[in-house]
Design a binder for these strands. Structure first.
Lengths: 336, 336
DNA sequence: CGTGGTAACTTAATCGATTTCGAAAATTAC
DNA sequence: GTAATTTTCGAAATCGATTAAGTTACCACG
């Protein structure tokens, strides 16, 4: 490997001079600097990120905390899109991405220790159990963090507009003439709480009274539980005219159940999903859903984190709300 | 941060002694070593991976090269599962995962340079254009690499058994009585070539003559193109009785097209997918497909790479074939 | 008692890059 | 022509950990 020393030898200058020239310091003559840069190019010099990190205490490396418990981690398109987007944005600012986990090779460390061990300049936290003490320790540590879809006091977060999204969805459905709207929700996370709250508030704003049985619990990303919830709804004396699912993928379970019972979409019942993943747009009829802008979420999270890292003085905790967009499909029919 | 020096001061020994004690060298008395370890624990000492990397020339960091060109990267469940699995296995051996890309923050580097810059001990290459000169440069460099679903001469690779998988699928369908089997294949990659070759060979072994029109080109992970291919098949004078799709997700396009034309699965036509992603198992009727063992692929790739890294002498290039498994769903009906 | 051996540490160099401080050389000022 | 600046560069310390080589001190053996 070509090092700064090799260049110094060839150019007959000191290592200090090479370093300065390569970093554009002003106390190196233009001529010398040009020489050195030329030599560096010719010799195929690459800075050694490790040495730089050690000396400067900055790794230009961002940790990401994505936990894949079968369903909600990378397996979920929403999160894999966020990850991809975080990566792309981070790269623009010269940062690489490393996964943070516990128990790296025998040494059992918690998230914070792992991030420290790797000298991460910051960590993006998503798709985890935010009540996990290890996560809380990390977030409250000296390492800058940005959380996704969850807010810790006095910390930066990027949030999908679950409240606005759900409101828009309900209003859209209402506008189509639906009055008996059911909502199958995911497990009790802050996301679910927001959507559920928004659902209730919007309904009441619209003057709708939603019977308790129209609110059915299920699990995110789990068609089976959504299928069961769907069945419970179909068994009601007064069936809803529209069902909102926890997410697009879960809707598959509802779709199956409806098919099985001979209830067709949207003639007999209307449905809507949430997320706007690719699948929702290739199904026929196309699923009406609320698209979460995963690309923007990842981008903004990366930007926010880089800002904390690079301008820690000016920084103040900030929550960035990312709006989504209603994707009108063909699964909500108009009722006169 | 607690460093080795802090411990040395507190224990009244030299830094060398601390280092040796912590690494279990034999020339430190049991008593001293115990003292030092105790102090390290109490002080919350964490080794600094960066310093270690710089000194030892080993980063315990593995690069992964996954390119997400809209469809085939992380967006594909197959690859995100592989990634997750690589990560888990690598962690067991004490390695972290970093994404490798080009153009990291202004500096434009190719994959090799990036991996060098970050001192990656090795790189896992998947889901890329294997004819890309930058990829070839990386693979032929001094950095150990393991490729997935592609073989470079004298290099280690982990392969999904596309030949065996396709053969099994065809034989299964044949066993169900089908003689007019169509195959919609993905774009021309080595994977497609293998599947296509295996399809032809197996058919001929079974004494089947497949008309050219039964082989239809499409694109992986693209329901639209598969939908069009499906339509072309349906327009044939003599329709196939069974259609094999390039992958499960693409099948959605076929499903839509069949639905539209009033052709029902599996009564009027049989279908099968490939991959065995979650989606295939939640659709109703459940999709008959060939499950690629992504978890094993990732695991074996990580193992192979770690072996090259840690035992470079004993290592010889090796191709590991990962068998899959037929998932019998309800989309292939029996024909008498 | 002297020599050799060993256990237990320490010293100091090293990995590659950055940066402070100082020094020499060149330029300007008077 | 001398003093004061400025320009340009180098020496050396530093980041945290590892390790080869050297140094004690102690013990054993002939």
């Amino acid at each position: 490997m070509v090092t700064i020393t090799d260049i110094a030898v060839r150019c007959n200058v000191s290592r200090a001079t090479v370093s300065k020239a390569l970093n554009g310091h002003s106390d190196i003559s233009a001529e010398t600097a040009a020489n050195i840069r030329q030599a560096a190019r010719e010799m195929g010099y690459l800075p050694n990120a490790t040495a730089r990190t050690l000396k400067l205490g900055r790794s230009h490396n961002i940790g990401v905390l994505f936990v894949d418990k079968t369903s909600s981690g990378l397996g979920h398109e929403y999160f894999s899109q966020i990850l991809e987007s975080v990566k792309q944005e981070a790269e623009k600012s010269g940062y690489d991405i490393t996964f943070i986990s516990r128990d790296i090779g025998g040494l059992s460390m918690d998230y914070y220790e792992h991030a420290k061990y790797r000298n991460c300049d910051g960590v993006i936290v998503a798709s985890v159990d935010f009540t996990d003490p290890a996560v809380i320790k990390l977030v409250n540590s000296d390492i800058p963090t940005v959380t996704l879809d969850y807010v810790f006091d006095s910390h930066s977060a990027v949030l999908s507009d679950n409240v606005g999204g759900m409101a828009e969805l309900v209003r859209y459905v209402y506008g189509k003439g639906h009055r008996r709207i059911a909502f199958i929700h995911g497990e009790f996370t802050s996301v679910t709480q927001k959507r559920l709250g928004s659902f209730h508030r919007t309904c009441s704003e619209l003057g709708l009274t939603i019977p308790d049985e129209y609110i059915q619990p299920a699990t995110f990303h789990d068609p089976k539980s959504s299928g069961l919830a769907t069945r419970r709804l179909l068994e009601l004396k007064e069936r809803p005219t529209c069902i909102l699912y926890p997410d697009d993928f879960s809707f598959i379970g509802g779709m199956n159940e409806l098919e099985k019972q001979g209830v067709s979409i949207p003639e007999d019942i209307s449905v809507a999903g949430y997320d706007g993943i690719l699948l929702s747009q290739v199904l026929r009829p196309r699923l009406t859903t609320y698209r979460q802008d995963a690309e923007a979420m990842g981008r903004e999270a990366a930007r926010a984190l880089v800002e904390i890292i690079e301008r820690p003085k000016e920084w103040i905790p900030r929550q960035t709300m990312i709006p989504g967009r209603l994707l009108e499909g063909d699964t909500v029919r108009t009722i006169e």
